[in-house]
Design a protein around this nucleic acid. Structure first.
Length: 198
DNA sequence: AACGAAGTCAACCGCTAATTT
DNA sequence: GAAATTAGCGGTTGACTTCGT
């Protein structure tokens, strides 16, 4: 990505894509001094970048244990389900997917999953309403988060949000918690498997 | 092979919340 | 308690890549 030209002549702050040299400088500095006070990191590491940019680069790319590559089916399931529960709270969703960043999940959602859901919505719209299929709900229940608030509300009555958001709970990054919280989602109209087959 | 459209994703922006002075 | 600073979040942008014609 080429550096952007915002017309500023006061201070030539680097923008755009990071070079390998910048990455190395940032990683080395953080290894020694830790990842805090990003403004200081930017200057002390000898980076002609703003602190914000350094933080983002570290969190989304340089941080250890970053998982790179394709999102697995299991992870996709998780994202879909968590999004249903949490909405666009990407950092919370990312917190439940070890090695994945909020930015990555947000991008994945916008480029892959939102389309799938839209397609599914359209499919469901043209289906005739059938009590056999879903005696309790109309077919058009693949709604947005705003629209689904009542459903989320129902789910919320069955689980403790604060507990859900408490990352100190042992095993919160494992799969046990997934079972605990997401078994709630038994709605056949929202089956992730269904969406994947689209 | 050339071109435009669509998709992808790293990075930036603006805002709010939290923390420090 | 107020102001300043820092951290963090979600939305958006735009360069690059891939795909279709």
């Amino acid at each position: 990505m080429a550096p952007r030209n915002d017309g500023s002549v006061k201070k030539l702050i680097n923008r755009g894509a990071w070079t390998a040299e910048e990455d190395q400088k940032l990683a080395q500095y953080i290894e020694i001094h830790g990842a805090k006070k990003w403004k200081t990191v930017a200057t002390k590491a000898g980076l002609n970048r703003c602190g914000k940019s350094c933080r983002l680069r570290w969190l989304n790319y340089l941080r250890p244990n970053i998982k790179r590559g394709n999102i697995s089916d299991e992870e996709e399931d998780l994202i879909l389900r968590l999004h249903k529960l949490l909405g666009n709270r990407w950092s919370l969703i990312a917190g439940r997917l070890p090695g994945r960043t909020d930015n990555e999940i947000k991008n994945y959602w916008n480029s892959h999953l939102s389309k799938k859901i839209n397609q599914n919505e359209k499919k469901i719209e043209i289906l005739p309403i059938s009590k056999e299929n879903n005696p309790q709900k109309p077919p058009n229940t693949m709604q947005t988060n705003e629209e689904s608030s009542s459903e989320i509300g129902d789910a919320m009555t069955n689980f403790d949000v604060s507990e859900f958001l408490d990352f100190s709970i042992e095993g919160s990054h494992g799969l046990d918690w997934v079972n605990k919280f997401l078994e709630l989602d038994e709605d056949p109209w929202l089956s992730v498997d269904k969406m994947r087959t689209l």
